[in-house]
Design a protein around this nucleic acid. Structure first.
Lengths: 109, 109
DNA sequence: AGTATACATCGCAATATTACGATTAATTTA
DNA sequence: TAAATTAATCGTAATATTGCGATGTATACT
């Protein structure tokens, strides 16, 4: 099949999985780290920084943007990307909530 | 191509991406939530709980196991799965570190 | 021994992802 | 206006993922 059966899972599970998928690629991790490090925004620098083709970087940026993690604003011929603070905090909280939901048990394995 | 160029990213980026990928599916999120909720371990219950075929659940469990997130111990004809506490904490810390690395800036977008 | 139970694995079909060259669109500079 | 710059999109090839039926394997029950 190859198609995820989203309808059998709840909204939270699908949402979490979607965000995780957006983050689940080394190039996209690297892109986010660079955006964070550069403090300000980025664009074509990433192509030189990462050593991937421009089309590939653009595709990764689109995925991050679709997930709402980053946002871009047009500045002349360039596009300035940066972290969407609101979403970042929200995701961060969802994640800590998820990880905090587990508390070690002794009676198993 | 369809193949990720892992060699151009560092160990941390690849590691983070791998773990994220293992978590990035609603079925695997649901499996983890069920294991956590049931406190003890699980096995065939997941097939009835989630409504996916046994082969499919088994495949998802293998991915979680490969990522080190869960571990299973054989108990007769059954296999008891549970969260690997050590790895869970480690991942949790890596994630909070990653999210904490961003601090809001004003001069952009 | 023979049957039942619980999982893992194989093989397949449908679909998604990754990467890139080529092209297009918009803006800036000469 | 022409050329240059920047980035999005299209099309395509290679590969990965998702899901399942069928089959294999190991242990438990009778």
């Amino acid at each position: 099949m190859g198609i995820t059966k989203s309808e059998i899972f709840n909204r939270q599970q699908n949402r979490l999985a979607t965000v995780l998928k957006a983050l689940a690629h080394p190039a996209r991790i690297a892109i986010l780290q660079h955006i964070i490090k550069a403090e300000a925004c980025i664009c074509n620098d990433l192509v030189e920084e990462l050593g991937l083709a421009q089309a590939t970087i653009s595709q990764h940026l689109r995925e991050l943007k679709n997930a709402g993690i980053i946002k871009g604003s047009i500045e002349g011929t360039r596009v300035c990307y940066c972290i969407d603070e609101k979403v970042w905090v929200q995701i961060s909280n969802e994640f800590s909530g998820f990880f905090a939901s587990f508390t070690p048990v002794k009676n198993c394995c």
